[in-house]
Simulated assay, not measured.
Amino acid sequence: MRIALLIAASVLVGGCSAGKTGQSEQSDSALPAPQGTTTSATSRPTSPTTTAALRPPEPGAEIADVIAFIEAGQAADVTRYHTATRDGATTDLGDDVAFTTPSGKANCMTDSQHFGGALACLVDLAIPPLQPPDIYGQWKGNWVDFPGPSIEVGSVHGDPGRFINGTGPELPHGAALSFGDYRCRSDPAGLYCVNYAHQSAARFSEAGVVPFGCLQKVTPPADIGEKYSC
């Protein structure tokens, strides 16, 4: 009888010990994984650009802050911006895009056939560049070319060029449109556009053109009003 009791007590002690061991293993497996073992879009570390994305960049802002602001805009469906309308007639632009800001102060369009998809805008500038001396032809001080490594404001054009097709659909304030190397965001402060290939950007508004990134004001060619270059 005494031997049976001893065997039963030994079994109980062994069972309790095994239970504690299993509980310890379960607790260890529930510990959080070390930082850096997994990555996800939601766990991206915060940075100064998070705050910058909430307000329109001012002159002198870092290119990272300008890009963050543009990318914070609500993505627009680019398929809606492959047409332009003039006098009620709509033209299919193929791979090119066209859009205008809600105020109508900026009418922008790409031209892949003649200019490799470079962006150009007609901006209703309050003070456009004056026509340089000894330059003849139809001067358009509000014509802005933004191929990426440079921005040219004001130039001579004998015809409407790409804008002969009219204007594209409205890009609402807060919306961002991606196309080619570009992304543009419409905002009450102006139209902000970045060219990722050259890490250059600009704000187009009635007040003028504000460059960001590598763009610096340079002496323009004789037939150009103002120029910014990387």
Rank of each mutant, 00 (worst) to 15 (best):
P102A: 12
E152K: 13
G94Y: 02
G88H: 11
F179N: 14
P169S: 06
P133I: 01
A33H: 09
P128Y: 01
I7G: 09
F99P: 00
I3L: 13
C230Y: 11
Q23K: 13
L31M: 08
L119T: 08
S155R: 00
L6Y: 11
P133S: 11
A120R: 02
A61C: 06
D95S: 13
T49G: 04
L12S: 13
A72Y: 12
S24G: 07
G94I: 00
K20F: 11
S200V: 03
H114R: 13
P221T: 02
A197H: 05
A207Q: 15
V156S: 04
T110D: 05
V156I: 09
A126T: 14
C193K: 05
P45C: 08
S178V: 12
S112N: 08
Q131T: 01
V11E: 07
G168S: 09
D87W: 12
E62N: 14
A52Q: 03
F163K: 03
H114L: 11
P59R: 05
P169A: 13
M109Y: 04
S40N: 07
A222H: 09
S43H: 10
G180C: 04
V123M: 10
V156E: 03
A61L: 05
G22C: 10
P220D: 00
S17W: 13
F69L: 03
T50A: 12
L54K: 15
K227H: 07
R203P: 00
F163A: 06
D223N: 10
I7Y: 10
L5Q: 12
A9G: 12
Q131L: 03
G15I: 13
T100I: 07
D223M: 02
C184I: 10
Y136A: 08
T101Y: 09
